[in-house]
Amino acid sequence: MTTTAPPSAAPPRAAKTVTRPGDRIFAGMSRGSGIFLLVVMAAIAVFLTVRAVSAISKDHGNFLTTFEWNAGLNPPVFGIAVLAYGTIVSSVIAMLIAVPIAVGIALFITHYAPRRVGGVLAYVIDLLAAVPSIIYGLWGAIFLVPHMKGLNLWLDTYFGWTVIFDKQDPNSAARSLFTVGILLAIMILPIITNVSREVIRQMPKMHEEAALALGATRWEVIRLSVLPFARSGIISASMLGLGRALGETMAVATVLSASPQLSAHLLDPLGGTFSQNIVAKFGEADQFGRDALIASGLVLFFITLLVNGAARLIIARRKEYSGANA
């Protein structure tokens, strides 16, 4: 990951070498699997679209603006308005919480912690990235939700005037988009931390030393040389985290008590997200209902495709580290 020159794999002049059948087969196989990967990506889009189009064409609501999801009715009425809203709101909450903290941890590991401690911490964060999402979901539903009650009441009492933090029924459980956002923030912390850390680590030592030699304090070194250098990396790390948050299923499905309402009251147990809706409605759905869910999955697919593609294009300028293993 951190070595010197990227090897230019092929020897400089391969033109006159004899191509043996073994060579041709092996090259064909490896090229073929590369092409297969592209085919899979295309197939995902095609198959999802085929089923989605057939479902949307029979939708008696407006697929984009209808609130409820009743694909089982006759005629079926379903739409993604609430799901899109819930997905975006919960992911935005997650980003607002996770990005500053993740950058803080990355700076802590690279600039503040003693070297040994930083190494161990980086390792622990790596391990935490591997915790399956269903376990976050279980923890969120059984541990976090009851413990959110105090915070919810406090927000409701002192910030209720903002509408966002106005809890309409103070006694309802904290199975809200806000809690989901916090849980998602915890889940995407490791990936944002890891990618930002790798980018910060690539910074030339000289910049920092120059700033220090001019008498800058540690914070000034970070603000004037580290953060400008790492900015694009941190942005794309955040977008990778956003991609995770948008598509996260189990943690949302266990925590949120869904209902087809579009509400600005984030503390109320309302709303839903794409993936949560798919898992929740799948069991009772018939063939057509599943096609309708596939249609909503297609929308999710394109949203994450856009977010991830953009993140990759930004990070592509720093080829060294992709974040795929983070």
Binding site: M41, T249, S275
Partner: peptide, 21 residues
């Protein structure tokens, strides 16, 4: 590029893809 993008596919979308297939 698509390998990178593919790492970000939500698991549920992969499930839906096989389902629709």
């Amino acid at each position: 590029f698509f390998v990178d993008v593919m790492t970000g596919i939500p698991s549920i979308v992969a499930g839906l893809f096989i389902l629709s297939m």
